[in-house]
C-alpha cells in the first residue's frame, strides 16, 4: 500500500562533503545545471499550470490555456470544497487513516521485532509470506475481499462493508507487508546488546519491546508512518469496492478523498467544471505537499533507515 521503499545500507548524514568536486570542469558544470534546470521545469511546470488553472474560469482554461487569469477565481476552491464535497471527503479520509496508521505501526513493529530478533520454526515461511504480499496486484483480490467482508458479518454479526472500521482493518492488513519489511530492517540495525542488558535486569520480552526497543525505533516509526500516510491518503482501489455511496442518502457521503476526486473527474463528462477540478486537485495535493516539505529530510532519510544486510 505504501510506496515501495527498498532498504539501504546505512543511516546516512547528508552533510558529507563533496567528493571529487575539484575534478569538475566548468563546461561539465554548465551542462549539469542546464540538465537540472530542464528537469526541474518539467517537474514544476505542470503543477504550476494546474494551480493557475485552478484560479481561472473554464472559458479561460479552454481559450487561453497559457495566460494567467484575468480575475483570480478563488470561488473555484469554495465550490470544490462544498459543492464537490472535497471537505467531507478529507474528513472521511482522516477518520480512516489516523487509526489505520497507528495500528499499522503498532502491529507491524511487533511482528517485525519478532522476525528480526528471534529464531523459531516457520519464521522463513512467515517472512516470505509477508514479502510476496508487496508484489500482488491489489485488484485481483477485490471481489474475494468483498466476499470475505460479507462473510464476517454473516458469522459474527459485525457489519464490515461500507463502514469506517471495516475500511480501517483492511487498510491495516494491506499495509502490513511493506511496514513489516521496513521495520524488520530497522530493528536489525539496532544493537542487540541493549535488549540483552535489559533482559539480564529481569525485564520481560514485552517490557523490553515497549520500554526499550520501541522508543529506540522512533526514527523508523516516523518514516514508516509518513510512508503509510502517503500510501493510505492516496489509496484508491480498496475504498472503491469497500466504501460505496449506494447505501447512504443523498447529501451524505462515505467516500474518501481519492474516490471523491475520481467521482468529480467523472462528472466532467456530464457537467464540465475543469476549474473546480483543478481547485480540487490543488486542495488534495496540499496536505501531501506540506507533509513532504515539513518532513522532507525525514522522508528522504526514511528511505535509508532499513538495513540492507537483512
Amino acid at each position: 500500500m505504501a510506496p515501495p521503499t527498498p532498504p539501504i545500507s546505512s543511516y546516512v548524514n547528508y552533510s558529507i562533503p563533496a567528493k571529487n568536486g575539484a575534478s569538475w570542469s566548468a563546461l561539465l558544470k554548465v551542462f549539469a545545471y542546464v540538465l537540472l534546470v530542464f528537469w526541474a521545469v518539467i517537474v514544476v511546470y505542470p503543477m504550476v499550470w494546474s494551480l493557475i488553472a485552478a484560479l481561472k474560469t473554464d472559458a479561460e482554461i479552454f481559450r487561453t490555456p497559457w495566460s494567467i487569469p484575468a480575475i483570480l477565481q478563488f470561488e473555484n476552491f469554495g465550490r470544490a470544497w462544498k459543492k464537490a464535497q472535497i471537505g467531507a471527503y478529507i474528513g472521511n479520509t482522516f477518520l480512516v487513516i489516523v487509526p489505520a496508521i497507528s495500528f499499522t505501526l503498532l502491529l507491524s513493529s511487533m511482528a517485525a521485532y519478532v522476525l528480526a530478533r528471534f529464531e523459531f520454526t516457520g519464521k522463513r515461511l512467515l517472512s516470505t509470506m509477508f514479502l510476496i504480499g508487496m508484489m500482488f496486484p491489489v485488484f485481483l483480490a477485490l471481489v474475494p475481499l468483498y466476499l470475505v467482508m460479507r462473510y464476517i458479518k454473516e458469522f459474527t454479526g459485525i457489519p464490515m462493508l461500507n463502514t469506517f472500521h471495516g475500511l480501517i482493518v483492511v487498510y491495516i492488513a494491506y499495509s502490513l507487508s511493506w511496514t513489516i519489511f521496513f521495520m524488520t530492517g530497522f530493528f536489525k540495525t539496532l544493537p542487540k546488546e541493549i535488549a540483552e542488558a535489559a533482559m539480564i535486569d529481569g525485564a520481560s520480552h514485552s517490557q523490553v519491546f515497549f520500554r526499550v526497543m520501541l522508543p529506540l525505533s522512533k526514527p523508523g516509526l516516523v518514516s514508516a508512518g509518513i510512508f503509510n500516510f502517503l500510501g493510505q491518503w492516496n489509496q484508491f482501489i480498496l475504498p472503491t469496492v469497500l466504501m460505496s455511496n449506494a447505501n447512504v442518502e443523498a447529501g451524505q457521503t462515505r467516500y474518501v478523498v481519492s474516490q471523491g476526486l475520481y467521482y468529480f473527474q467523472n462528472q466532467q463528462m456530464y457537467q464540465s467544471d475543469f476549474s473546480g477540478l483543478f481547485a480540487a486537485v490543488a486542495i488534495v495535493t496540499l496536505p501531501t505537499l506540506i507533509v513532504y516539505l515539513v518532513f522532507q529530510d525525514r522522508i528522504e532519510k526514511g528511505l535509508t533507515v532499513g538495513a540492507l544486510k537483512g
Binding site: V143, Y146, V241, S244, A250, N266
Partner: peptide, 30 residues
C-alpha cells in the same frame, strides 16, 4: 430513498453478489 451514484456497476456489483439488490436503479452512464 434516492441514492445518487456514478459508476453504477462498481458501486452496485457487491450488492448483487450479496443477493441484496435495490428495488429500482438507473443503469446508465460510463
Amino acid at each position: 430513498s434516492v441514492k445518487p451514484i456514478q459508476k453504477v456497476s462498481e458501486e452496485l456489483r457487491p450488492r448483487l453478489v450479496e443477493g441484496n439488490p435495490p428495488d429500482v436503479i438507473d443503469n446508465s452512464g460510463a
